[in-house]
């Protein structure tokens, strides 16, 4: 089994009466690019702040490099580079000076500044004040700050935030090269699966403070094969939605004629059709397809689980 660089057990965090995180079990293996996914407000940044000791958990434990964070905070943080939300930059200083501030704080050699500037390709602009930097350059400088101590683990909170498509692609290439060429383990959070699905090796999905999935990308693809979407063209979408929802189906409106239903298998397609017809809804079309990874992510974070076929069979039996 791979060595775990971060491990959390039953992590809870409460802000006032509001429960932000509930029972989080995270396992970040060495050498991975670990995507931490979830919609805005799911608790990603809170989790990262807990991992870095910026917040105190209400319950549960955090282990960094196999040691408990609370007892070995300084030792653990020495091996971590961080970028939390927007980078903390001093706008009146140049990029080089910003790195020098962090270099002095960390007590690392001066040569590291040139090395990290080269990695993030900011040598040309290093002597310009940060207030003249574009958003993408600021993000890259933030990564350079995180890399300064040559850490084993990088914790990056939404590093692609606010970047244009080419900036996102650049960041993706940078992260892959840091992982593959420099051997860094990367833990990065994002609210968009499409942004990181080509980059990550492992991922977890957080929704409303609870972990809905954790595993490799292959494992998520396996899960994806079990989830299918059925587009149903009907005479009355509102009645169809109500009937299917009452029977426990995850339904969403597509347009004025179609609803989308999440089903487990082909057998369920016939049952959905039968259910609608028995309620007097005319079904004029059925389109059965596999759920994409993005749809999978959306369904995990926005909808209930696909209804079990048995539930619909039971309803149909009652009707007949």
């Amino acid at each position: 089994m791979n060595e775990l660089l971060i491990q959390t057990q039953d992590l809870h965090y409460q802000y006032g009466r509001q429960k932000i995180l509930q029972g989080l079990h995270l396992h970040i293996p060495k050498g991975s690019i670990y995507g931490f996914l979830g919609p805005n407000g799911a608790g990603k940044t809170t989790t990262i702040r807990l991992l870095l000791g910026l917040l105190q958990p209400t319950r549960g434990s955090i282990h960094l490099f196999g040691k408990e964070l609370e007892l070995h905070r300084v030792g653990g943080l020495q091996r971590i580079g961080t970028l939390i939300e927007t980078p903390s930059l001093y706008n009146h200083l140049t990029g080089q000076d910003n790195l020098e501030v962090m270099r002095r704080l960390l007590g690392v050699g001066k040569h590291r500044i040139d090395e990290v500037l080269e990695i993030v390709r900011l040598q040309q602009d290093a002597h310009r004040p940060v207030k003249h930097y574009s958003l993408g350059m600021c993000q890259r400088l933030g990564i350079a700050l995180a890399l300064l101590s040559d850490p084993e683990l990088l914790i990056l909170d939404e590093p692609t935030n606010g970047l244009d498509p080419s900036g996102i692609r650049e960041m993706r290439e940078l992260l892959i090269s840091l992982n593959q060429e420099h051997g860094k383990t990367i833990f990065l959070s994002s609210h968009l699966l499409s942004e990181i699905e080509k980059t990550v090796t492992h991922l977890s999905i957080l929704h409303q403070g609870t972990l809905r999935f954790e595993g490799t990308v292959q494992e998520l693809h396996q899960l994806e094969k079990h989830g299918h979407l059925l587009e149903v063209e009907v005479s009355n979408v509102l009645s169809a939605k109500e009937i299917l929802s009452v029977n426990g189906c995850a339904v969403e409106l597509v347009d004025a004629q179609k609803v989308r239903v999440k089903v487990r298998n082909k057998e369920a397609v016939a049952l959905v059709n039968q259910l609608l017809v028995q309620h007097g809804i005319q079904v004029t079309g059925l389109l059965y397809g596999q759920q994409s990874l993005e749809e999978m992510f959306l369904s995990i974070t926005t909808q209930p689980e696909p209804v079990a076929t048995e539930t619909m069979v039971r309803t149909l039996l009652t009707l007949s």
């Binding site: 702040r49 910026l54 300084v74 927007t86 903390s88 001093y90 960390l106």
Partner: peptide, 18 residues
């Protein structure tokens, strides 16, 4: 104010020092 303006507290408190 320099620290508040740069939103730098998180970076400082996540630095490896007491």
């Amino acid at each position: 104010g320099i620290e508040h303006h740069a939103n730098g507290w998180k970076q400082l408190y996540a630095a490896p020092m007491p």
